[in-house]
Design a protein around this nucleic acid. Sequence first.
DNA 1: TGCCTATATTGACGTGCGTCAAATCAGCTG
DNA 2: CAGCTGATTTGACGCACGTCAATATAGGCA
Lengths: 125, 125
Amino acid sequence: MSNTKVLPLLEPEAPAAEAPCCPPLAERPFTAEEAERTAKMFKALGDPVRLRLFSLVASHEGGEACVCDISDVGVSQPTVSHHLKKLREAGLLTSERRGTWVYYKVAPSVVAAMGQMLALPREGA
Amino acid sequence: MSNTKVLPLLEPEAPAAEAPCCPPLAERPFTAEEAERTAKMFKALGDPVRLRLFSLVASHEGGEACVCDISDVGVSQPTVSHHLKKLREAGLLTSERRGTWVYYKVAPSVVAAMGQMLALPREGA
DNA sequence: TGCCTATATTGACGTGCGTCAAATCAGCTG
DNA sequence: CAGCTGATTTGACGCACGTCAATATAGGCA
């Protein structure tokens, strides 16, 4: 019980601290700085190949996938790596090397924050 | 009761029929076609100026604003018009001319669809 | 009709981005 | 160590995009 990961209470390699990103888009106008920061996340999903890669990772078992499992999206392997890097830089994915392979997994808090931004007030309110 | 808009049960100029866009990103891998279509919406919000414009419209009373009310985002007037067109083409905004002014309003169903795409399965599931 | 304001369109310019081939780095295995 | 596979980085190319000034269109008003 010493080297096995029994207590994932805190994960050192996951940033997991970008939660205070932004309010819902309809709550108040975004400041220039908020918009600058947030636009990067939306832009990361604004490419068809990246969207497929993200979907492949997110729909994989445990929200995690090896690069070799998701490289069949119609572009060259360096291009896949390039897009995965973009998604990682945007905070949407995290990567971890395990032996020969590199695994990417979704960053749930960041994705959830994006979803909350798109929440609109109820019609009746 | 003839020319006043008393029954907005169906709005002819609003598309309002893009609901069957895509499943949640984590449900199954996106097809190339789904990714192509969806990426346009995320790309539309992937620019800081557009994000501010969208936020300005969404946070305005009734989710609707005149162009003159939201043109102060640091770029020229033609650029504002260009970005609003992009948001409209992406289906996120609709526009309507009322006399001298043009009003933009959010397309709630499309925004809601984007939000649902970002819904992740619960950790325990 | 003519003028003024509001918004959209056109055309041009520079930058950013997606893409690939080639080279490099990382880790396993013989 | 050599050699192999998986993944990233580098460099180059072409296209798409954000931006603006200039122009055009639309609608009110004198």
